[in-house]
C-alpha cells in the first residue's frame, strides 16, 4: 500500500493550484523514494517535473511502485475542502482505482476523507539530464511574478538576456516596448530578498510569456525562484518546496524560423 502524511497540508493545496492550469492530468509516480510527477502541457511546449522526497513527509510508506493517474482539476476540487492548517494523508491500496485523501484539523475535532477516482494515463517519461547552465539566476519569486505579469501586458514573447551587467527581460507589442533589468544584489538582509546571478557565459533566449506567467502560479510555494539558461535549450524555472522537494518548469525557447 501507499501512505503519505504531511502536517503542512497547505503545501499540497498550493502545489496543485500551481499545476492545474498547465497540466490537466498526469501520473503521480510513487516509490519508496517519494512521489514524483512529470507532465507536459496540452501543447507539449513545456514540461512540469515535481519531486517530493520520502523524508520530507511526516510519514511515508510505499510497498510497491505505482503510477496514479490524477485529473488535477478534480484533485483541486477535493483539496479545496481541506483547511489551510489541516494535516493531509494520502492513501491508496496496491493497484487501487482511487486515492483517499484524509484531512485532519489541528484540534483533531474534525476529520474528513475524500476518495478521488484515478485514471489510466499513458505517458512517456522524458530523461532530463543534469547539466551546467550558462546562467543561473536566483531572485525573489514575487519579483519574478511581477516581471512576467507586467511584461505579459505589453507583449507575447520575452527576450531574456544574461550578461555581466545583469539579467534583462525585454518585450515589445502594440503599446510599445519594455525592458526590465535586475542586477546581482546581495544588499538586502533577508536572503530571500536577494538576487544572485551566476554567469558562466552570456546567453540570450526568447520565450512565450504566457507560459512564464503561468509558472508564477507557484509563487506561494517558495520565497525564491531559480532561472537556468543555456543557448538553444529550455529554460528551467525552479521552486524549492522547503525540505519536501521541488517543482521545475521547463519551457522550450522560441527559435527563428
Amino acid at each position: 500500500m501507499f501512505e503519505a502524511r504531511i502536517t503542512q497540508g497547505s503545501v499540497l493545496k498550493k502545489l496543485v493550484e500551481a499545476l492545474k492550469e498547465l497540466v490537466t492530468e498526469g501520473n503521480f509516480d510513487v516509490s519508496n523514494t517519494g512521489l514524483s510527477l512529470q507532465a507536459m502541457d496540452s501543447s507539449h511546449v513545456c514540461l512540469v517535473s515535481l519531486t517530493l522526497r520520502e523524508d520530507g513527509f511526516d510519514h511515508f510508506r510505499c510497498d510497491r511502485n505505482m503510477a496514479m493517474g490524477i485529473h488535477f482539476g478534480n484533485l483541486s476540487k477535493i483539496l479545496k475542502c481541506a483547511g489551510n492548517e489541516d494535516t493531509i494523508t494520502l492513501k491508496a491500496e496496491d493497484n487501487a482505482d482511487q486515492l483517499t485523501l484524509m484531512f485532519e484539523a489541528p484540534s483533531q475535532d474534525r476529520i474528513s476523507d475524500f476518495d478521488l477516482k484515478l485514471m489510466s494515463i499513458e505517458s512517456e517519461h522524458l530523461g532530463i539530464p543534469d547539466q551546467d547552465y550558462s546562467a543561473e539566476v536566483k531572485l525573489p519569486s514575487s519579483e519574478y511574478q511581477r516581471i512576467v505579469r507586467d511584461l505579459t501586458s505589453i507583449g507575447d514573447t520575452v527576450l531574456i538576456s544574461a550578461t555581466k551587467e545583469g539579467i534583462k527581460f525585454s518585450t515589445s507589442g502594440d503599446v510599445g516596448t519594455a525592458n526590465i533589468t535586475l542586477r546581482h544584489n546581495t544588499t538586502p538582509e533577508k536572503p530571500e530578498e536577494q538576487t544572485f546571478i551566476d554567469l558562466k557565459e552570456p546567453v540570450a533566449l526568447t520565450f512565450a510569456l504566457r507560459y512564464l506567467n503561468n509558472f508564477s502560479k507557484a509563487t506561494p510555494l517558495a520565497p525564491q525562484v531559480k532561472l537556468s539558461l543555456t543557448k538553444d535549450l529550455p529554460i528551467v524555472v525552479e521552486y524549492q518546496v522547503g525540505e519536501l522537494g521541488s517543482v521545475r518548469f521547463y519551457l522550450a525557447p522560441k527559435i527563428d524560423d
Binding site: L126, G127, D257
Partner: peptide, 14 residues
C-alpha cells in the same frame, strides 16, 4: 518569424 518546438524534442524518452 519565430517558431516553437515541442519540449520533448529536447529530452530523451526513457
Amino acid at each position: 518569424q519565430t517558431k516553437q518546438r515541442s519540449i520533448s524534442a529536447f529530452f530523451k524518452t526513457s
